[in-house]
Design a protein around this nucleic acid. Structure first.
Lengths: 341, 341
DNA sequence: GCTTGCGATGACAGCGCTACCATTAGTCAT
DNA sequence: ATGACTAATGGTAGCGCTGTCATCGCAAGC
């Protein structure tokens, strides 16, 4: 009797023996049933079930120099925005033979580059990375990846391969223009983290205010700290200390907007009369706040879903017609910016 | 010249040739440097660097029937509670040779069982699972896993292997007793999802109110829907429609508490005078709310950190002295339950 | 009837690594 | 000096699967 190191799990040879065929036929029946006659296929299926056979992924990967791992690199685990994207990814991978390998770059391009190296050394089936702001070497790694690559959350004119996202600058511009149209004139900006996407939203803000001839850089309040509700409170407090006549704020994150709302309540500033508040992303809580908060709804789950869709199509040999998808966004105007004048 | 399927990556044989040793010595030098003489070790290190050699994980796994994958199964990606736990896990795995494989059971024990099967078929180095409420077969799988297993987030007297968590019932009891002590007499319960941990918090609530002779099951409002801020608003509205004299609520999640706060503002109910509000978990936003919201702080990051710590100790052959760790919790009393009477 | 082509199946040789055992040289007690 | 042991290194044989080529019928075409 042969000694087994694998804890008694059946191998493809066991299935083959039971089905009365060679192991390579079992391998084919499993990977591409059409290449095996119907009768053998039935016998093999029976044997697989009877033995409770599960293919060994490592052996498969070693022999074929291919895996079923989709690497996903995102900058944050705690940011709800990415949680929704991940849900879109995991939900749509669940029924497939693929597995997700998740990496957290913590908003550091260096860390992202390191993760890319680690992931690529495992020959992933595909790679999904958040953002378009890789380091030079990171981009080189992606270009040489030899597998489908999807950049998500943002848009640029030079995708490494495929891309699903929306324009953050346009989003920032839209919401800021809305504040102007609503009658606000001294509009501030609250920004946390200041990662590249945040920067682009700020650019949109700036462009909209320059157009309206209302731009005043002193109303921009940012911090490298990561976004949170308490930070929204603190940033608004800072801004009002410096520029007490500010009459509206665009918060680059919904967390900040909620924090700012609480700070207004604390300072007895009426929203939207004394202070207009708008956020970005439209997390679920925005609509439930009192007053409900204006925000830019971004289709985050959809981004995850589409990314997996593109990956699966590519791997099935059907490269999607559109390799650069703009999923857009939608301004949700709510009471927090409806000034009654 | 031999054909390579691996895209030209150097193998252990290349390193061995360059260092002038056999490949098995390279293998040893990499895995357990102490078993190789210092001189060879130096030469091998040099060769590894020169060739930019990265071991093939799949070949390693196949040959050794072991991997460096730590499987983690959690019930939700969007719940901030688990995001913090994940952060604790990922942060503490980053510097190790281990990799995390994440599974999302979506609060379904069946799905969890399926994931356990998938993960175990890959012979993980260790498994971390949320909760103690596995299916019978899931528990059997864990018992037979043949690797360290850590159950997290909860406590029981029968760990499969190791355990890091706290008592949800005690947490629910503590916060409810606090409401009683603060002078509230008609205390409601808002609960979403009603997963096992939520159920235990409800048990704590019930026990505390029975002790105080204030228990009235009609004040319990629950839903299987998943927790959210808008749900907190809706549940409180329901509760007040049925039991308008309710003077305080324990919300089984902070989301619900924030939603309830907004609903009080909408209904012009003063917090804490007309309505006391307490949550659970103490997410960051609780302290920033107006008024700041009472909650039970749970050490979520710490749970992730300790789980990895236990796993790494076990795998290093140093089984931790304590295999069942109660990380406790802390009641954060804030203005939302400080009635001035 | 014989070639040609094609679909279905199998034999065999690895993929890159490690378990296992063998070998060698050196150390120590007797 | 001998055997017994240890530390350092190597040789060999797989781990479980798939790529590649070979083989075998069998139908179609001349």
């Amino acid at each position: 009797m042969r000694k087994r190191r694998n804890g008694g799990r059946p191998t493809i040879a066991d299935v083959a023996a039971r089905a009365g065929v060679s192991s390579i036929t079992v391998s084919r029946a499993l990977r591409d049933p059409a290449r095996v006659s119907e009768e053998l296929r039935r016998q093999i299926d029976e044997a697989v079930r009877a033995l409770d056979y599960v293919p060994d992924q490592h052996a498969r990967a070693l022999a074929s120099a291919r895996t079923n791992i989709i690497g996903v690199i995102i900058p944050s685990l705690t940011n709800n925005v990415f949680a929704d994207v991940l849900r879109g990814i995991y939900d749509n991978v669940a029924e497939s033979p693929f597995q997700v390998q998740l990496g957290n770059s913590r908003y550091s391009p260096i860390e992202e580059e390191r993760l890319l190296g680690t992931f690529l050394s495992q020959r992933p089936a595909a790679l999904i990375v958040a953002g378009i702001d890789q380091t030079e070497r990171g981009r080189a790694l992606l270009n040489a990846a030899g597998c489908p690559v999807v950049q998500i959350m943002d848009l640029s004119d030079e995708p490494v391969d495929m891309m699903v996202g929306f324009s953050h600058k346009a989003g920032g511009h839209l919401v800021t223009s809305h504040l102007v149209a609503a009658g606000y004139r001294r509009i501030g900006f609250l920004g946390a983290r200041m990662d590249p996407r945040t920067q682009r939203r700020l650019e949109g803000y700036r462009a909209a205010l320059v157009e309206a001839d209302l731009y005043d850089p002193r109303r921009i309040t940012t911090t490298p700290a990561s976004s949170s509700v308490s930070l929204g409170r603190d940033l608004l407090r800072d801004l009002l200390a410096r520029m007490p006549d500010t009459d509206a704020i665009f918060c680059n994150n919904d967390d900040l907007a909620v924090g700012a709302l609480f700070e207004c309540q604390r300072a007895a500033l009426a929203v939207p009369a004394d202070m207009g508040i708008a956020g970005f992303n439209d997390l679920e809580m925005m609509e439930a706040a009192y007053p409900p908060l204006t925000s830019v709804r971004t289709p985050r789950y959809e981004i995850g879903r589409r990314a997996i869709e593109m990956v699966r199509a590519s791997l099935a040999g059907q490269r999607p017609a559109q390799t650069r998808i703009d999923v857009g966004f939608e301004l949700k105007v709510r009471a927090s910016t409806m000034r009654g004048d």
